[in-house]
Amino acid sequence: MTGRSDRQQIRSRRMTEAGAEEAYEAARIAFELGRSPTIQVPKRLAKAPDVESMVRLAPHTAA
């Protein structure tokens, strides 16, 4: 068995565990926020249950 096949089997097994999908999604979002925050990320975060989304725009202060 190759290393890739081993990893795929382990991942498949782990994804059947309780809470695995939610944890995977949370890790994916955290990765995206750190790597490439786009408008899609806040849109997905806004859909999270029990979360109030807020966006604040303020003028720059004079330097």
Rank of each mutant, 00 (worst) to 15 (best):
A48F: 07
R56I: 15
A58V: 14
M15I: 00
S12V: 05
P42E: 07
L45Q: 04
M1S: 06
Y24G: 03
M1V: 09
E22C: 01
P49M: 09
A18L: 10
S5Y: 12
G19A: 07
D50Y: 03
E17S: 06
R14N: 14
E22S: 00
Q8R: 02
T2G: 03
Q8T: 01
S5N: 11
I39L: 08
T61Q: 15
G34D: 05
L45A: 07
A18G: 12
M15K: 15
R14L: 11
E17L: 06
Q40K: 13
G34S: 05
M15G: 08
P49R: 09
P37R: 09
P59S: 12
A46R: 14
R11F: 15
A27R: 03
I39V: 05
A23Q: 02
R28V: 08
P59Q: 13
E17H: 10
R7M: 11
D6G: 05
Q9T: 14
A27M: 05
P59D: 09
T61P: 01
R13S: 08
D50L: 05
Q8G: 04
A30D: 05
K43Q: 10
S12I: 04
Q40S: 13
Q40A: 13
A48Q: 15
P37V: 06
T61E: 15
A27H: 03
T2W: 10
K47V: 02
M1L: 11
I10G: 09
Q9S: 14
A58F: 08
D50H: 13
R7N: 10
R13N: 09
Q9C: 12
T61Y: 12
M1T: 05
A46C: 12
D6P: 00
S12F: 09
Y24I: 00
E17C: 06
I10L: 11
T38A: 03
A46T: 11
R56Y: 11
K47N: 12
Q9K: 11
K43V: 11
V41Q: 00
A63E: 15
A46L: 14
K43D: 07
A62Y: 15
V51Y: 00
S53F: 08
S5V: 14
V51N: 13
R44E: 12
F31W: 00
R7H: 09
G19R: 02
E21R: 07
A30G: 06
R4G: 06
R4F: 06
S5T: 14
G19L: 00
G19I: 00
K43M: 08
K47G: 03
G3W: 03
P42A: 01
G34F: 05
A58M: 12
K47C: 08
R28D: 01
A58D: 04
V41D: 00
I10Y: 01
G34N: 03
G3K: 07
A30M: 04
E52N: 13
I39C: 04
G3R: 10
R56E: 10
T61N: 13
L33R: 06
T61C: 10
G19Y: 05
T16D: 07
E32N: 00
A18M: 08
V51G: 11
A63W: 07
A18C: 12
E52S: 14
K43S: 06
D6L: 13
V55Y: 10
T2F: 07
K47F: 08
G34H: 03
D50G: 12
S36T: 02
V55F: 13
A18S: 15
T61K: 15
A30C: 02
G34V: 02
L33H: 07
V51T: 15
D50V: 04
D50N: 15
